[in-house]
Design a protein around this nucleic acid. Structure first.
Lengths: 133, 133
DNA sequence: CTAAAACCTGACATCAATGTGAGAGGCAAG
DNA sequence: CTTGCCTCTCACATTGATGTCAGGTTTTAG
């Protein structure tokens, strides 16, 4: 498939896909005229990359980590230390966010005395609340 | 105290403290000559701000949220909806990071056959491992 | 009083991921 | 062949928090 379709099917912008390629995160075949061609596996790859990005990893880090994911035996000790550092960073971020989440929840619970006059906006909220908890 | 001392005692740079003030996150008295003066409570305030920043909230969001923390009854329904949105965002980020953390851990566990030749770097790791788990 | 150290404002730089636009070429359908 | 859509590369813009530098004032120590 070409880049437009891959973008559509992954939710990534075309710009981002080219950027991922620049960073060495995905490889693309090229047609004679120079257009990028992707096979079906590219979709999962891109989705995976975007999950890692959403988890706060940088493209540089992802570039380092991806080979280990494909083949864990490819780990060097340097790479392992990198993985551990990233895991620790994630743990710290999770801890910080969990604490803040609880703090926000507490404030929300100490909610205002349900003011029915201007309360129109909070009526739109419940759908968002049906998540994860 | 003056800005330099506050910076030293909070770990924030002077630049950041002025930035927080620009964003309306902290207020500072001014001496006749225009220098910022802070009381002891500023320390906790700055630390708190930095915790929220570390949790991924933007200064704009923090500016909106801070008054609720000081006085939960100050919540408008619009603000409550903002709080809920932020909480949900945190929940999503936590979920994503938790999943990625587990994935990294799994790769780490599938570690290489402890290569004693180039393994000098992994000897420096254990101290970092004594964290959170 | 003087020199050093700390502070002021203002402006420009940085990083990372992404947006956006220009100018040119590729490709399928009419 | 032409029209329209897709793609190419290159380059500059954006956002947010922070760094850094410059030129000028204030405070403090000797």
């Amino acid at each position: 498939m070409r880049i437009g379709e891959l973008a559509q099917r992954t939710g990534a912008s075309i710009r981002s896909l080219r950027y991922y390629e620049d960073c060495g995160l995905i490889a693309a075949e090229r047609s004679v005229s120079g257009q990028r061609r992707y096979d079906e596996t590219a979709i999962a790859q891109v989705v995976h990359i975007r999950e890692l990005l959403a988890a706060g990893l940088s493209t540089n880090t992802i570039a380092d980590v991806l080979p280990c994911i494909a083949d864990p035996s490819a780990q060097t000790s340097r790479l392992t230390s990198r993985l551990i550092a990233e895991r620790d960073r994630l743990a710290a971020e999770i801890a910080q966010r969990t604490a803040t989440q609880a703090a926000l929840q507490q404030i929300i619970d100490t909610a205002p005395p349900l003011n029915t006059s201007t309360d129109q906006s909070s009526a739109a909220i419940p759908p968002m609340t049906n998540l994860t908890y």
